[in-house]
Nucleic acid binder design. Structure first.
Lengths: 127, 127
DNA sequence: CGGCATCCTATCCGATACTG
DNA sequence: CAGTATCGGATAGGATGCCG
């Protein structure tokens, strides 16, 4: 197989035209927010995170952590021991990001019933 | 055609286990937020929205609008005229949603440079 | 233990053509 | 004008295996 182009190019796009897209891409994916919230409580190791989140694959946890590290939301610390130990913790940037996110989460909790309601109404009347 | 299963099942999931997922799914996709922000300024028709957003396909605009309507973020009004006229506007729910979103957008603007910085540093040192 | 490479699937999304 | 139907390429994400 002439693997000119890897299936997953892990390189980073530096210049998004729209700043908000960077943020949306990070919280839009399935796992980033879960990881950040787990790390808000305490510093965690790779497998601890996996257990904490529950149903994430190692693949996705690995990618999610790498992206969050690249974007400066989390800090990755390697302890040169055997067996190897790697700890993840929030950076100041990551912590500050969770502040506006909290207001959004609160809104989501408060209005979830309204959304569900709208869906039911739509299904009854419209469809 | 024995269309047992449509290629795209447009049916709605009513019960998300996690409320925030509903919101994240809506703002995580490429277009919903752009549509909401366009409608924040004024009520718009289908093709007006398409022009306003610029590079969205009719396909995606149609699906995005339908989901936003299902979830109660926007209101769709059909005027029985020829040629047909359909107007979209924010509901109270949609408008209230944009409030917490604003704080997130402001955060994104303020911290975009920090994210870009982190990426450059990561590329230089890590990779 | 941490985590990348591989394979595979489901879904996203654009382009286009067609309908009322 | 306001969409829907269909096709096809790109991408996200899960399962698994290997390796330091």
């Amino acid at each position: 197989m002439s693997n000119e182009k890897a299936q997953h190019d892990e390189s980073v796009e530096f210049e998004q035209p729209c700043p908000i897209r960077d943020v949306l891409d990070r919280i839009g994916d399935q796992w980033s927010l879960l990881v950040l919230e787990a790390l808000e409580i305490q510093t965690l190791r790779f497998n601890e995170l996996a257990r904490e989140i529950g149903d994430i694959s190692k693949q996705m946890l690995s990618r999610t952590l790498k992206r969050l590290e690249q974007d400066g939301f989390i800090l990755r610390t390697i302890y040169p021991e055997v067996p190897p130990r790697v700890e993840y913790q929030l950076t100041d940037l990551g912590r500050s990001f969770l502040v506006p996110m909290q207001t959004l989460i609160i809104w989501a909790d408060s209005n979830h019933h309204a959304i569900c309601n709208a869906r039911v109404n739509y299904a009854i009347s419209g469809k």
